[in-house]
């Protein structure tokens, strides 16, 4: 359950984050303002409050079950962080790259797809992976709305058998095992995306 919530909410965060990240660098003032407002609001409100708001507030209106509400809350919250990472990644690509592509007759969309995003991806991957790990840990917060994920399972076990130390030790170890595995995977991704002689690729 923890893994399902994490993966689904992270995918949602990635999609929304890409959209909002691109909005922030567009040349339409309204889109930029919306993107910046979205990020400011979502980063400024605790995830726990967002979970309550979406489950008890929007959940009532749209009749959301616990699972969807949990995924949407975590996904939307993380999309704000992802939007910032994606925006920063795109902006870090040198201005000359846009000009070189334009001087060859490429349209802004072609430039984004073939020149800017492939370079930005390499910058975006490491921080995105650590966001995924953070997302996994924060998924424990949805236990508060009664979703039976790892933390909730721990609480239920505890209330049945009253072994507190062992229960939470075990829960902690399971989280740690997952995050350590992911950290390893992140390092692999970083190497995989490195380009010979470019950026971090130089150090290989």
């Amino acid at each position: 359950m923890t893994i399902a919530i994490t993966v689904l909410s992270y995918l949602l965060a990635l999609l929304l984050g890409l959209g909002v990240g691109l909005m922030q660098i567009s040349n339409r003032r309204l889109l930029v303002m919306f993107g910046k407002g979205y990020v400011d609001v979502l980063r400024g409100v605790p995830l726990l409050v967002q979970i309550f708001f979406i489950y008890f507030g929007l959940g009532r209106i749209f009749n959301l079950d616990r699972f969807s509400a949990g995924v949407i809350a975590v996904g939307i919250c993380y999309s704000a962080y992802m939007a910032e990472i994606i925006r920063a990644g795109i902006e870090s690509v040198a201005h000359g790259q846009h000009e070189a592509a334009a001087s060859l007759g490429m349209t802004p969309a072609q430039t984004m797809r073939h020149v800017i995003l492939p370079q930005a991806t390499r910058i975006i991957v490491p921080p995105s992976a650590s966001e995924f790990i953070a997302c996994l840990k924060d998924s424990s917060l949805v236990s508060i709305i009664g979703l039976r994920e790892l933390t909730r399972a721990g609480r239920e076990y505890y209330s049945q058998y009253f072994v507190d130390f062992q229960t939470w030790l075990l829960v902690g170890v399971v989280y740690l095992a997952m995050t350590l595995l992911l950290t390893r995977f992140t390092r692999y991704l970083e190497k995989r995306f490195a380009v010979r002689g470019y950026g971090t690729g130089l150090r290989r």
Partner: peptide, 26 residues
């Protein structure tokens, strides 16, 4: 065509991919 002072090659592509990109895309 325009050749820049700072070259502005696409660093994520090899030489041949740099040259082939615009013919392919445009």
């Amino acid at each position: 065509g325009l050749v820049f002072q700072q070259f502005n090659l696409f660093p994520h592509l090899t030489a041949i991919e740099n040259v082939a990109l615009a013919p392919r895309v445009v």
